[in-house]
């Protein structure tokens, strides 16, 4: 299995008043292609901070995170944007769909930043909506959808460009059990079919049950790991 993420002695500090808060205290991790892994831990354990750095939304204070061969700390803003645009997908706790746009437009949005023709975009959007079972909702707008449907749109948006890596921060936090399982099964299927790497930040037992690799964080450090053979 090829490594797509390599994290070496990663430290992240945030200024708080005149002092500093160390969120990550020296993380060492590697992730391979097609993993379905989760960063698990209570609030303040550093899982979202780590996910943000992997997603090049934030910079390490010390150490390095090499994502798809790119050292995050050395990337310019433009290079970070290019990495996210071409290779990363994000799924958020609160879906974060553009409320005034239709389902189709929301899913199409990442493709507008890439050089696809209109017909290519249309096909890719319809494929993504088929993966998540929402082809009948193309013209709906987010306020007309249920929470589960919104998160499926968010998954379609994250997956539409077939990224190498999808980062999901508490994706089921706002969903009931049935919808959570539905969503997780969808992501698991996509992981199997497209070999996309999924990394979750979660403390939800429902999510943890689906993970093939569980990385437990505690106070900014990796406490222990579990590999599940399924």
């Amino acid at each position: 299995m090829e490594n797509i993420i390599q994290i070496n002695q990663l430290i992240k500090r945030f200024p708080i008043g005149k002092g500093e808060f160390t969120a990550l205290k020296g993380i060492n991790l590697t992730f391979g292609t097609g993993e379905f892994a989760g960063l698990i831990g209570p609030s303040g354990s550093g899982k979202t901070t780590l996910l943000n750095i992997i997603g090049s939304l934030d910079m390490p204070t010390e150490g390095e995170a090499i994502v798809l061969g790119k050292p995050i700390s050395k990337l310019s803003a433009k290079e970070s944007a290019k990495l996210r645009k071409e290779s990363l997908g994000f799924i958020f706790q609160s879906y974060n769909l553009l409320q005034v746009h239709t389902v189709f437009e929301n899913v199409e949005f990442p493709l507008l930043l890439l050089d696809y023709t209109t017909s290519e975009r249309k096909k890719m959007v319809m494929d993504a909506l088929e993966w998540v079972g929402l082809t009948d909702k193309v013209k709906s707008k987010p306020p007309q959808l249920s929470g589960g449907e919104c998160q499926r749109v968010a998954i379609a948006r994250a997956m539409v460009k077939k990224p190498s890596l999808v980062l999901a921060d508490e994706p089921t936090a706002n969903l009931d059990a049935a919808n959570s399982h539905n969503i997780l099964q969808t992501m698991l299927n996509l992981n199997r079919e497209l070999k996309t790497t999924f990394i979750f930040a979660t403390h939800d037992e429902k999510v943890i049950g689906y993970l093939k690799r569980k990385i437990f964080l505690k106070d900014g450090l990796v406490d222990h790991e579990e590999w599940i053979k399924k």
Binding site: A77, K78, A81, R84
Partner: peptide, 12 residues
């Protein structure tokens, strides 16, 4: 919205 767009790779 800007956050989302930046996350998707749009430049600032």
């Amino acid at each position: 919205e800007f956050g989302i767009r930046l996350a998707m790779g749009e430049e600032k």
